[in-house]
């Protein structure tokens, strides 16, 4: 059964992966990081990604109808040279965490990464 570090290292094996982090979106704390940080600093990246995740999770516009948790599955941001994939983790205990994967646009495969990150998020907390 993978721990946090194994999960992040597995995410880094995806094609084009530049960096990955496990972030709490209430506090903005990075509970684990590997690889490069977008913008150069993992702590800043975690706080900024947490803002985005919280907005998506709290605004009714983005949440599934009638679903209890997690309110949102993924948040995807693309820019000219990279993708950011935030995957909310559904824990059986109370938490507010997501996996943040940063992918280079040239080598990255967003569809594949989205599926794999979802599987990793589930394995992390379900074993």
């Amino acid at each position: 059964m993978p721990g946090i570090d194994e999960c992040l290292l597995e995410a880094m094996r995806l094609p084009g992966a530049r960096g990955a982090a496990l972030v709490d979106w209430t506090s903005g704390l990075a509970l684990g990081t590997v690889g490069e940080a977008p913008g150069g600093d993992h702590e800043t990246a975690a706080a900024e990604a947490a803002e985005l995740a919280r907005l998506a999770a709290e605004h009714g516009t983005f949440t599934a109808q009638g679903a209890d948790r997690p309110p949102v599955e993924d948040v995807i941001v693309s820019n000219a040279d990279s993708y950011h994939l935030l995957r909310f983790i559904d824990t059986s205990f109370d938490s507010s965490v997501f996996l943040h994967l940063w992918l280079g646009r040239e080598e990255g495969n967003l569809a594949l990464a989205r599926i794999r990150l979802g599987e990793m998020a589930a394995r992390l907390v379900l074993g």
Partner: peptide, 18 residues
């Protein structure tokens, strides 16, 4: 004991620690 997944326990442990 393997009663809980490692990731879940690590996550909960760090949450509680901070």
């Amino acid at each position: 004991s393997g009663l809980l997944p490692a990731g879940a326990l690590e996550l909960c442990h760090l949450d509680a620690l901070y």
